[in-house]
Design a protein around this nucleic acid. Structure first.
Length: 145
DNA sequence: CCCTGATTCGC
DNA sequence: GCGAATCAGG
């Protein structure tokens, strides 16, 4: 997904409204992470929010003015993401199933789940479009866990 | 552990 | 330009 004018507008509005980056990412929808939101906000020159991270200048000033050690931040290359199996699941992972239990390729979504819920933001929309006619409930996946 | 925003840098 | 990875503080 790209940053359309509409999405940029939404980003500005929500950022100014004081929403957190992760909340904005959730509202913008699938494929947008909080990193993307923060990166774009920074690029757009939106107002800084209080950051918990000290800058090098701040750190240096606090420690007495000596220059910081300046560690290198080397990045690793993205390994091919493995399938999330039942044994890989943790409490904070999305438990939305792909395939059927017993199948060789049965696995789970595995993205970060919403706090206190078994699914990520996207799959929560699928799972909890409920409270509605029973006909729609047929499309809900079975609760495996 | 969870969260937060800032920064870097491979793509 | 984009954003995942990497930071570091709460």
């Amino acid at each position: 997904m790209s940053w359309t004018d509409e999405r940029i507008e939404t980003l500005k509005r929500l950022w100014d409204a004081g929403k957190s980056a992760s909340q904005i990412a959730t509202e913008l929808g699938e494929g947008v992470t909080r990193n993307a939101v923060i990166g774009k906000a920074h690029r757009l020159g939106l107002k800084s929010r209080p950051s918990p991270v000290k800058s090098d200048a701040q750190a240096a000033a606090k420690t007495g003015g000596t220059a910081a050690p300046a560690k290198k931040r080397t990045r690793k290359k993205k390994p091919a993401d493995d399938r999330v199996t039942l044994l890989d699941l943790t409490e904070r992972m999305c438990k939305w199933p792909y395939g059927h239990p017993g199948d060789a390729d049965f696995h789970f979504c595995g993205k970060p789940s919403q706090p206190g819920l078994p699914y990520c933001a996207q799959h929560c929309q699928e799972a909890y479009q409920a409270l509605q006619p029973r006909k729609d409930r047929r499309n809900r996946p079975p609760r495996i866990i």
